[in-house]
Every structure is written in C-alpha cells, then in structure tokens.
Amino acid sequence: MTGAAIEATGLGMKYRSRGRGWALRDCSFRLPAGRVCALVGPNGAGKSTLLALAAGFLRPSEGAVRVLGEAPGEARARVAFVAQDKPLYPQLTVAATLWAGAELNPETWDQDTAERIAGELPRDAAVRDLSGGQRTRLALALALGKRPELLLLDEPMADLDPLARHQLMGALMAEAAEHSTTIVMSSHILTELEGACDYLLLVDGGRVRLGGETEDIVAAHTLLTGPVRDTAPHTVVESRTAGRLQTALVRRQGPVDTTVWEAAEPSLEELLLAHLRSPEAPALLTPSAAAVEAGREVVAV
C-alpha cells in the first residue's frame, strides 16, 4: 500500500459564527499519494472546507485529517494550497511576490519552476493591478515554486479563459508527472477536470458520496434500459420511467441479465449528475479510497 496523501476519519466541521450548521460531516476517505484527484460537488457542498482543513487553516470540529502522514499543521512545508480567492499581497509586485515565496520557503523553493509558471506576467506590475487570470497564474507559480508533495487547488481555473486554462493545466500536469506530486483540484464544473484527473471525490451535502479511481467508479456502474421492473439485485442510484420504458443507473451486484436489459457504461457526467439528483443513494468508496479503520491505524503517528 502506498502512503496516503490525505486520510480523513470521521471528519466534521461546523462553523460556529455563521450559524450554518455542519459544512462537513462524518467524512472518512483516503487519497493515495501520486494521484491527480478531482474534488467535485455542487456549490456549498463542503469542498472548500475540506481543502481548508487539509491545508491546516481550520481546526476540525470532530474527527481528524492527516496529510502526508502528519497533522496538517506539521505538513505545511510539504503542502501547497491555492484558495479560491487567490490571496496575494496587493501592494507587492509580481517579482516581489516570487521573492517572498523564496524567503518563506528557504529550503524547497525552486525559482525556475516559479518563473516558468509565471510566464510572461509583467514582473514589475503590482499585484493589485493584475487581472483575475493573471492572479491565478501568479498564485499557481507561488504554489508550485515551493515544490509541494501535495497541491491543493480550490476552483483553480475559474478565472481563466479556455486558452490559458488549457495551457496552465498542461503546465500543472507536467510538473505533477515530473515530481509525482499529488494534486487535488476542486470544481463544480466537471468538464474543467475530466481527462486530467485519475481519481475522484464527490462531495455533496457535507459528505463524501463517491471516492476512488475514476475508471473503477465508472466501471462499477451500468446504465440499464428496459421494461419497468425491479432491478434487483443491483443497487439503484437513479431510475426514471418514460411510458413503458425504464432507464436506471445502477451499481452492479453480480452480472447483468442482458436478456432483459440493455446495458451501457455511463459517462462520468451522467454518473455524477445521477448521484447529485439522488441524495439517498448509498456512498461508494473503492478499496483504495476507504479510510483505514481506527483499530488498524498503526502506521500513523
């Protein structure tokens, strides 16, 4: 078993001051190191809270999260996080921001990587004068410049035009492949991440609904089309009837009776939408994504 980049057990976060109740509840999952993981879910699902907890910005209300085998606060030097609003010091120039990255990461800073990601950003421009896309680029340069083992990106591409998005995503993937960095990218737009990510976490209503290798998750489901009748023994995620025809997305339990059903593999988007539309569908974590139980947690600490 390879090491876990993120491991959450019973993780929960409740915002006291905002009166919103639980932003995240009873989350247990495991993200193996070296993966590029899409963290998807609707707005307000708890994606940002999960990332903030993993980055060590918040103290969980219950449960625990471990990052690269350590408490989030201790793994700070090995983790980079780009928050949704791309926090940067507005009064500093681009060059001074990169200089600050070098100052704050004396041991790991890689100026070449940072310069490469920063690309053609005007070095003497003040951060407050940059456009949203330019700020994203600079924030990513800062994050990659510190050579993290785990890179957490909250809605990283939202401010970018398609061309810049494609280019930055390419640069990101190249860095990840070269240094086998684990990346977690959150988004509520799946198409932004599809193709780039080999791992999937679906967070919805403060819980992890799906977790595991994208291929395995897709392969575990089948889209059945046929007469209106019980789909047992398969677990139904979502079922719709139109006249005498039923379409059901099921999690297979044993072989599909192809004499009754026409079976097809769903697309990732169909799969996610079906889960989001059916909040009562049971969660699915593939073996690599299932958290190690408390009793077996001997490797930790």
Partner: peptide, 15 residues
C-alpha cells in the same frame, strides 16, 4: 479580513 494570511500559511509559515 482579506484572507492574505493564507498566503503566508501555505508558504510553510505556521500561524
């Protein structure tokens, strides 16, 4: 207030 503390905190600086 503006959230820039997170810049330092993700750059290996503890709170």
């Amino acid at each position: 207030e503006s959230g820039t503390f997170r810049l330092a905190w993700t750059q290996s600086v503890t709170p």
